[in-house]
């Protein structure tokens, strides 16, 4: 019975999603057809679809998709790890938080597009500068989430651990990391979206590989249908990576109040 209602929920979700996209494409199609919009301004959905399929049929998209996916996942992993470690250290050592937090805020508020040339000069035109940019975009939200998570542990839970004479590792592994998960996953979801944006921006500005490069190439050669196909592919990559984080969240946060309605 429970499985059936779960399946019904999934089916209804897919139906609503498809309907929403269908209505959008229908409007797009009707607008292009009846407003007589030239293809170099906005091609019809059908033309974009052909261009999208061509990217895969010719096989030209695979190395670019691989490069971007690798950058996103690797940069996100390192950025998240650093964010979590720094968040933990900042909560435990107030002096380091006071000393280092302003630099991280500078990094976060600086326009990322302006940092790319700087990173290229420092780290070269290859993958390192792109990974560094992604890390710089992921680290801050994850650090903030980790700090919020650790701060939200009830005082009496800490008292309980004190009464039980738990050691530092037990406090961290048994309680702190698990209590931090809700806030941490909220920040990881922001982080993964930031990672995709970071990768595309970095590839747009430099390099000869990646989905960002496809977008630059299509834009500079006025291949609008290819540009739109590239944008769609970037969005799909964003959704796929976001959903990966979502799957982990559902697995690890099964106990959280927010998951009650998903059962």
């Amino acid at each position: 019975m429970k499985n059936r209602s779960k399946l019904q929920k999934i089916a209804s979700g897919i139906w609503e999603y498809t309907l929403s996209i269908g209505i959008f494409i229908a409007f797009w199609f009707v607008y292009v057809r009846f407003a007589d919009v030239p293809a170099y301004i906005l091609p019809s959905p059908g033309v974009v679809w052909i261009s999208f399929v061509d990217l895969f049929r010719t096989g030209m998209v695979w190395p670019h998709l691989w490069t971007t996916s690798y950058e996103v996942l690797f940069g996100f992993f390192i950025g998240s790890l650093l964010g979590m470690i720094l968040g933990y250290i900042f909560i435990k050592i107030d002096f380091l938080k006071v000393a280092l937090m302003p630099y991280l805020i500078f990094l976060q508020t600086a326009p990322k597009i302006a940092l790319v040339p700087l990173f290229v000069i420092w780290f070269g035109i290859g993958i390192v500068s792109k990974i560094v940019l992604i890390i710089s975009m992921v680290i801050f939200p994850v650090l903030s989430g980790m700090m919020l998570g650790l701060d939200s542990i009830p005082a009496d839970v800490r008292n309980l651990l004190k009464v039980l004479k738990a050691n530092r590792w037990q406090v961290f592994s048994q309680v702190e990391i698990k209590y931090s998960l809700p806030a941490l996953f909220s920040s990881l979801k922001i982080g993964i979206v930031q990672a995709v944006i970071g990768a595309i921006v970095a590839e747009w500005m430099s390099g000869k590989q990646g989905l960002g490069y496809i977008l630059t190439y299509a834009s500079s050669t006025y291949k609008i249908s290819m540009l739109l196909a590239g944008i769609v592919l970037t969005i799909l990559l964003g959704i796929a990576t976001y959903e990966m984080v979502n799957i982990f969240e559902n697995k690890l946060l099964y106990w959280h109040e927010s998951k009650r309605n998903q059962e």
Partner: peptide, 9 residues
């Protein structure tokens, strides 16, 4: 404790 302080997971 006053609140039962159970670990929710």
């Amino acid at each position: 404790f006053q609140d039962s302080v159970l670990l929710p997971w």
